[in-house]
Design a binder for these strands. Sequence first.
DNA 1: TGCAAATCATTAAAGGCTTTAAGTTTCTAG
DNA 2: CTAGAAACTTAAAGCCTTTAATGATTTGCA
Lengths: 190, 190
Amino acid sequence: MARAGVTPERLARAAAELADEVGFDKVTASAVARRFDVSVASLYAHVANAHDLRVRVALLALAELADRVADAVTGRAGKDALVAFGNAYRAYAQQHPGRYAAARLRLDPETAASSAGPRHAAMSRAILRGYGVPDEEQTHAVRLLGSTFHGFVSLEASGGFEHSGDSETSWTRTLDALDVALRNWPSPPA
Amino acid sequence: MARAGVTPERLARAAAELADEVGFDKVTASAVARRFDVSVASLYAHVANAHDLRVRVALLALAELADRVADAVTGRAGKDALVAFGNAYRAYAQQHPGRYAAARLRLDPETAASSAGPRHAAMSRAILRGYGVPDEEQTHAVRLLGSTFHGFVSLEASGGFEHSGDSETSWTRTLDALDVALRNWPSPPA
DNA sequence: TGCAAATCATTAAAGGCTTTAAGTTTCTAG
DNA sequence: CTAGAAACTTAAAGCCTTTAATGATTTGCA
């Protein structure tokens, strides 16, 4: 009965590791409890429920991802920054598939607002400023970046590109395409 | 004990409806059995296991989606075709969120090959031919289309765009961006 | 027509996950 | 040193998956 020293933070970290090892969908309260060598019930003193546990993994992942991206883009602008952003994003998803899956969890508005989500948006906007995308168009361009990166990484992770290789070239083309789109962004109503 | 007339097809259809109503993750063998007013165990005479049931929903959705897209693009070319493709894709995802989620299920290679997946790729290639994208680049361009559409629709469905509205304009811009990218596709090694 | 084999469905049961309730041990602050 | 808070445990109920054994219903062929 020595205390195991369970805290919400340690739980989230353990759950994140578990997610990367066996998949986010297999992150259960039971599995995390086993990893801590603690009874399942005791977890419920630290997290509200199984969903809460998963949300914590999501927040952890969003923060880590934002850190990585921030590191990658500082000191760069234009296509350099775009590529650095994309590469950091993709690398994180490849190195931490479980965490990445968690980061795509639907969060309720308040939770989302207090997450690193806004930091992601801010970094995207910083890149767009470099491209001269007008303010009132930035929301749309942020969405294009987010959609494209997420879409690529998500299809790549789910094995959609395995049949015929050369994922790298596809990624390069994707970055090129975004660069072209941002450089020729349609001014207000074209 | 009157027979309920359960068949793999009817199960898949019921599961698809259930998915659209309550979410794909809540499609359980138990829930489908209840909907058929049949004991859970009897389902296992028709599907191998719960995963098999979900795969069947995925195959159903992929086929339906391919039908919709095919309808939309026939008789069109260039940007018209691109927009029709995208709109059909997005509309399906919006009208059938559960089925769409199912369609993104990871399939093993053989199953994927026998699914409507190849039809999707073929329709994408048809569009690319209209844009004059060279053969050896088509795989990459197909991936860009798939990534972008999936990414947008997926983020939109998961509520990522709710905070600040005007999803429609974002979608228009996304289609414009793809059009630009395809028209200026980098010939082999630019 | 009539019955045997193949089908379809049921009950039973084991094993896992989630969550709550109630009780016990370990800290820690006064 | 001791009481209350905090951390854990066991117990139990409810739901899901899957397999096994059993009973009912078709179906098609003598």
